[in-house]
Nucleic acid binder design. Structure first.
Lengths: 244, 244
DNA sequence: CGCGGGGTTGAGGTCAATCAATCAATGTGG
DNA sequence: CCACATTGATTGATTGACCTCAACCCCGCG
């Protein structure tokens, strides 16, 4: 087995949010996972679908998205390596949102019936999965607040903090330097802002010395400053470890 | 046992979202539920708390709320009779949001350890509860979209549709006439709008002949018109029955 | 070399916030 | 029973944040 298999990515993540034991890890390793690569802006699942697979993000960035009647897109959450974006599909048959890649991404597919059997036989694993969906919900709550009550500057800082923090906590970045080839349009869809305003807001964050961007790389130069500007408190991410 | 006990309220709700069997119903009826009344604007749980009870809404309206650093409030979801707002507390020890009454309300408290044992011994009940939290998450997703990408008029119509639909599906209102003594300030906090603009938006909906309000009573005069104006599609509520 | 996607910039317009009253309904103490 | 306070709804005037439109630039790519 390779040093970082798809199972390892999943297990590492579950360990950061739940107390998984050796026995559970062994069980998790038996899950057959089909890996597949996707380019950016690819719809993995669409509203109305009735999928029979859930997928774990192995690399890249995935978003859950919804479209309004007049075609505007809203990204309702990000998903990074180790996350299982559509785990709710296990118990909600019809999808109420899309899941799309926001960057080139690698996904691992797991059959619903396999996961359901696992949950049935291993309550601790079921709890870990349930907990994972509950953390997703907590993130949605924070996003409602972010979009509803924070102005563009704070909102942007907040979302950058969340992204960087989450990437860090699964070991995907070092020193607050995130290499995320996400477009400004996608950021706008996540924040409920126009791309033009996203651009200007990023400029302002750079001008204030909080971030630097080189190409698709976002560098949080002043992490304490950024978290302060973004009104960012990690409580809602429900990580075992307090923070960095 | 009275015709509508607190257990009945809970069970009726679970039946609308999951296939609960007779045996499960018998089990659910054994849950000890402590009832208690609250006035409007009362904090039931606060961010940072580590509650040992979950509560089912028996009557009235409850909201999950968050506050930004500069004290602005955002309501991230409504909860009506039969809902268990903080069921996530079962697996997330620290609260990341508050739960407050938005109207005078009656609540039924259930111990976490009782619920956890129940889930452990009755997988179908566990699934029903899990599913309930997943539907909450779906509603959060919709709210992100509503607040992020819809303008005030549509946003308001949408939230009224959701409220009326949910109240109807648990048998709390007839004929699209909702008697909800919710303040315009609370509506603003749910929509990310100022109270002044809430007031003007409601006037516009009245002018368009979509709703009528007499005191705290909201009447959807033109339900098809209101759902159209609100870009409202019931998919995200994951009810068994399609809609009215 | 033309093309397209993504980023950047400027100007003008609009939706919704803010500020500041007013008013109605309800409650309270003297 | 009345003066007074409080809560919530309403209205008008002004301000401001963000959007839209329309360029233009840069760069990778067929």
């Amino acid at each position: 087995m390779p040093p970082t298999s798809s199972s390892d990515t999943l297990i590492r993540k579950l360990q950061t949010i739940s107390d998984i034991r050796e026995a559970d890890i062994a069980v998790l390793k038996t899950i057959p996972i089909q890996e597949k690569d996707f380019s950016a802006s690819h719809d993995l699942v669409r509203e109305g679908d009735r999928p029979v697979y859930s997928f774990v993000v192995l690399d890249g960035l995935v978003g859950s998205t919804k479209y309004t009647g007049d075609g505007k897109r809203q990204i309702t959450s990000f998903f990074v390596a180790g996350d299982i974006p559509d785990l709710h599909g296990l118990h909600l048959s019809v999808m109420d949102c899309n899941f799309s890649t926001l960057t080139p991404a690698r996904m691992g597919f797991m059959r619903h019936d396999v996961l359901r059997n696992l949950c049935y036989q291993h309550p601790r694993i079921a709890t870990a999965f349930w907990r994972s969906t509950l953390i997703d919900a907590a993130i949605y709550r924070e996003w409602v607040t972010n979009v509803g009550r924070r102005e563009a500057y704070t909102r942007m800082a907040h979302i950058l903090c969340e992204l960087i923090f989450r990437l860090k906590s699964v070991g995907r970045i070092q020193d607050h330097v995130a290499d995320i080839p996400i477009t400004q349009a996608a950021l706008g869809d996540a924040l409920g802002l126009s791309t033009v305003h996203v651009n200007r807001t990023l400029q302002e964050l750079r001008r204030e010395g909080l971030i630097a961007t080189t190409g698709s790389r976002v560098h949080a130069i002043d992490w304490p400053g950024l978290t302060h500007a973004g009104d960012f408190d990690t409580t809602y991410l429900h990580q075992g470890n307090p923070a960095a």
